[in-house]
Design a protein around this nucleic acid. Structure first.
Lengths: 210, 210
DNA sequence: CGTCCTACCGAACGTTCGTTAGGGTGACGG
DNA sequence: CCGTCACCCTAACGAACGTTCGGTAGGACG
């Protein structure tokens, strides 16, 4: 059971109350304007409350931001574990990678600002926030290390690539898609997250060369 | 001739004077703490001058930051063009990609904060800064589009991958290395930028699958 | 009815912010 | 030798910042 309830992605903004509403609006603002340029007055006015009211739910701006990052990682970690549970034990290794890439990307685009903030804003976050979040990040990254190590020992991964470096490259590559991929613009470029996952898995697995 | 002189990477911090010194220190601070959490007083004290003195060289904080991003792109663009000029016309396509990946990565790690800020801080930069920088970014990205289109028309690129998307994936992948790669820590993990370029080129070209 | 507790408010606190005004000093060209 | 300019200074401005404090409306519970 999670320490803090996590808002489901299906809940619309207006349905949220109090604390969850603050988290949602704050996450969106932090993501677009960064930490330092987002004031508690910005957040409060987006929610429709007074700045002082935020302190009823969070003891400081840093704590609020840390909680946002934590929720984002929690979403992603749960998606990873769910995928692991769903995966057939004797599934081909390419399938396992694809499934986890898709799970990661789905978490990334479904829970929008929470997960995205971990990639976009975390690198320039205050040291105190970083320190609080790093352990949770590590736990998630170790899941990937385990996955990639299994692929390597089963001979399906280039042995010249050490696992930690491979994980960094793979996660870095798929994370970088948040800078340009938008699952909601269903224009002619129309691509679902599933399509993106396929493309990105192909990239890291087979490359783009013909 | 560039509008503004660009500091060479070999110049040490102490050698720089006035304006260049401000740019260097500001770039480092922006990169680590973000835009909003870096004050002009922070920058001034790092340089060893008074906050007001910055206004002799830059008309505002936004202009200073914009100039840093501009210099970073300029470095990268020049590295791209230099590589193009050096490349033998009949070089194999794999070599061309490798050369440009290496040029990009070298620019990324050689001119540290200037180029890195474009990846780390730009996404959360103030709108005015973004608007000023986007055109210069586009010019660089179009160089990559041209390169990838040449690889595609010569049949060496997966035809299912459209050029713009391929460019985003390739640049996103290699840019994401700044989050973890450090060329200066010559520990057992010792790897030069050249080594990294080789690995990243292999990734986007052939993938990590065995 | 009295007593909590949750969720919020209005007002203010001290601090820090980006920015401006105006002055000084040393190097250099006429 | 005088002006000009580059470069930096001190001092201060109003605005905005994170945060604190005392208070209040309303529901739950005895």
């Amino acid at each position: 059971m999670p320490i803090v309830s996590v808002t489901t992605s299906s809940a619309s903004l207006a349905e949220l109350t109090g604390r969850d509403r603050i988290l949602q609006e704050a996450a969106e603002l932090f993501l677009t304007k960064g930490y330092g340029d987002t004031s508690l007055r910005d957040i409060a006015s987006a929610v429709g409350i007074q700045p002082a009211s935020i302190y009823h739910h969070f003891s400081s701006k840093e704590v609020l931001f840390t909680e946002i990052l934590r929720i984002g990682i929690e979403h992603t970690t749960e998606a990873f574990d769910r995928t692991n549970a769903d995966l057939n034990a004797d599934a081909p290794p390419g399938i396992a990678l694809l499934a986890h890439v898709e799970a990661h990307l789905t978490a990334l685009f479904d829970h929008g600002p929470y997960t995205a903030a971990n990639i976009v804003v975390f690198p320039v976050a205050p040291d105190a926030v970083k320190a609080a979040v790093v352990p949770i990040r590590d736990a998630y990254e170790q899941r990937w290390d385990t996955l990639l190590r299994e692929l390597a020992t089963s001979g399906q991964l280039d042995p010249d690539l050490d696992v930690r470096m491979a994980r960094r490259i793979v996660l870095g590559s798929i994370n970088s898609t948040i800078e340009w991929f938008n699952p909601t613009d269903s224009q002619k470029d129309a691509q679902s997250v599933t399509d993106l996952a396929k493309v990105m898995t192909d990239l890291v697995w087979k490359g783009i060369g013909a």
